[in-house]
Amino acid sequence: MKNIWAICKKEIKTYFTSPIAYVVITVFLVLIGFFFYSLIWWFNSQSLQMAQNQYYYQQLNINQMVYSPLFHNMSIILLLMIPLLTMRLFSEEKKRQTDELLFTSPISVNQIILGKYFASLFVLLVMLFLTGILSIFVFSYGNPELAPILSGYLGLFLVGAAFLAVGIFFSSLTENQIVSAILTFGVLLLFWILNWASYSAGGMWKSVLNYLSFFQHFDDMTRGILDTTDVVYYLSFIFLGLFLTYSVIQSRRWR
């Protein structure tokens, strides 16, 4: 545990002494702010229109009309940003040959991977935490339900964590950071598109594609539905990503 923490601490420091974390977080927040603004603006105008009709007015739901689409937007922006967070984790070590220090120190490969992974999770948490500012506004001027927001955030965290696990895997494959980012981006995009393909597919394929897609599992959570299968899906994805990373690193050393 101590070793994981040593690696993690160093990686977090690296994130925040280089511009990467700041740039990624800032761009993420600016985009989310813009989405939030337009969603709130739209919700506002809907409210004004519906104000005459008591029945429709009752139907307005800020959770469904603002938060649910906002969470979806956030997940897409995460898809674009996370490859940039993970690309350097192992690629850079290999390129600079600093991996020689890590692998000749009395710490295990597992500890190195987990330390790096937790550091990237920390940056993800910071990103998500900072978007909480938006909710302060919503709660001070409206009365949304808290539970679906929390489950939405949990969903976002799981999605992001799965993205990071994919990213760290591709980072272990190549010493070129750009290649690592592009591969991560491509695979994440593919899993996103699987969702669309499932609309046109039929029978068993439909359910298989549906199950594999990142976003199907996420959709429920943005609406406040917490299903263990969804959580298990993400956790197994994370496990697979980290396990593959471990295999790549071990096989490289044995070749």
Binding site: T14, Q97, D99
Partner: peptide, 16 residues
């Protein structure tokens, strides 16, 4: 634990 190693390319993190 008992071996110190200086590789050919010194493994340094330039940003530290």
């Amino acid at each position: 634990k008992i071996t110190g190693y200086l590789p050919e390319n010194v493994p340094l993190y330039p940003e530290m």
